[in-house]
Nucleic acid binder design. Structure first.
Lengths: 236, 236
DNA sequence: GTCTATAGCGTGATAGAC
DNA sequence: GTCTATCACGCTATAGAC
């Protein structure tokens, strides 16, 4: 693992793993396949990685960084006094660009986050959490600047926005008519302005049938960052 | 498989499979586990199902129906002349309610749609496609009624909206402060009105650095329903 | 450093007792 | 109908040749 040549091969193995995993998933990917894709053999992988999970975990880490770092860099490139709208849109453009550009590590990430062993996901959880924080803060900046309504929950807003972008990984086709930037433009338009015209008569919520609304009345408290329980991918 | 008793056991096996699969995923779930969860043994499952995939596929089908049918029923319960806003909001409430109520089949569905063998996903694809159509049509109804801006792409709008709800499966915690209906209310608010205040100065898009925008210029054509290529979960 | 051979285990599936 | 025993296979991981 010392020579630069070996480091190059290590990278090639990682890239091959990402490529295969993005298509076949975690359990269905065999070391033999990764080896073949990297021009070597299953047994040889153990010279570079302790075991299958160590290899996969590194793919996962590269996957998150491949999105978060370009977003951070895009923000850093802006003037320090850039308006909040500028900052949020630039971040979204960078995010969308990375998500849809066809990066194997990113595809692999979203394919297997909720397939990998629990301990591994646990160890990994800090990455998406930090990224969620970045977006929550952007939403708060927006509120401070008056381009996000004060009654909007920054956490929910961020979850809805990123949810829409994550699902795009499933439906977006690179050969279609939309560039990543087009998707970003349209999503930003819907997210900020809403799909309804300014003068739309949405009226009060439809009155439910008497039986429908029987849950507790909690309405205003901010959504805590997932205290416990249930299944969960890894909510940023 | 003829007696009513056997049918009950079959259902119990399906329920057990959904429960286990929702947590462990497709490949990691063994027939022994399903058998144990259903109070029987791996070998016995073969009396009710041809093989593992046949069992899993049925779980998948129940999963989609568990969301789409309540939504259709909610729409059917409305007056025939109910306003579009009423219809869309009712559909979203029913959708969200089902997604977040903790139905094992639905959790299992979203956990494994992109893990199952290709042929199985292919066979299954009609279900989500029909559901996507339902939502596309609701968006068009909204446009006809003037509560969705004419320049909004109904397909993109539906994909963004459903994407936000699908991701909620990952971050929503049933013991938190938000009921499914609360999530639905807030999502509808953001989706229709937008997060920005009516008078927000969003201005023109931030001017890109010269190097940034180098993709093809396609901007207006509607997004085709995924002609080919790439990976893909199963975009409705 | 890289490949080959193989150990060791867990899985889906089947056959046949009851 | 339901369970037990077992087969055949494919996988991760290791040991050791080169």
């Amino acid at each position: 693992m010392k020579t630069p040549k070996a480091a190059k091969k290590r990278d090639a193995i990682l890239a091959a793993a990402a490529r295969v995993v993005a298509v076949k998933g975690y359990a269905e990917t065999t070391l033999a396949e990764i080896g073949e894709a990297a021009g070597t053999f299953a047994g040889s992988l153990y010279y570079y990685f302790a075991n299958k999970d160590a290899l996969i975990e590194e793919v996962l880490n590269i996957g998150t960084t491949s999105v978060s770092r370009p977003v951070e860099e895009a923000l850093d490139r802006l003037q320090p006094d850039a308006p909040a709208w500028h900052r949020i849109k630039s971040a979204l453009d960078a995010h969308m660009q990375q998500m849809l550009v066809g990066n194997d590590y990113i595809s692999a990430y979203w394919k297997i986050v909720d397939q990998v062993p629990e301990e591994m996901r646990e160890r990994h959880r800090q990455h998406p959490r930090a990224y969620g924080n970045l977006w929550r803060n952007l939403m708060r900046e927006g509120q401070a600047a008056g381009i996000v309504r004060p009654e909007v929950d920054p956490n929910l807003a961020q979850l809805f926005l990123l949810g829409a972008t994550i699902y795009a990984l499933d439906w977006y086709r690179p050969n279609g008519t939309l560039s990543p930037r087009d998707v970003s433009d349209r999503l930003a338009d819907m997210f900020f302005r809403g799909v309804a015209p300014a003068d739309a008569a949405l009226g009060p919520l439809p009155t439910d049938k008497p039986a429908a609304r029987k849950r507790k009345t909690a309405t205003t408290a901010p959504a805590k960052q997932a205290p416990a329980g249930r299944k969960a991918r890894t909510a940023p």
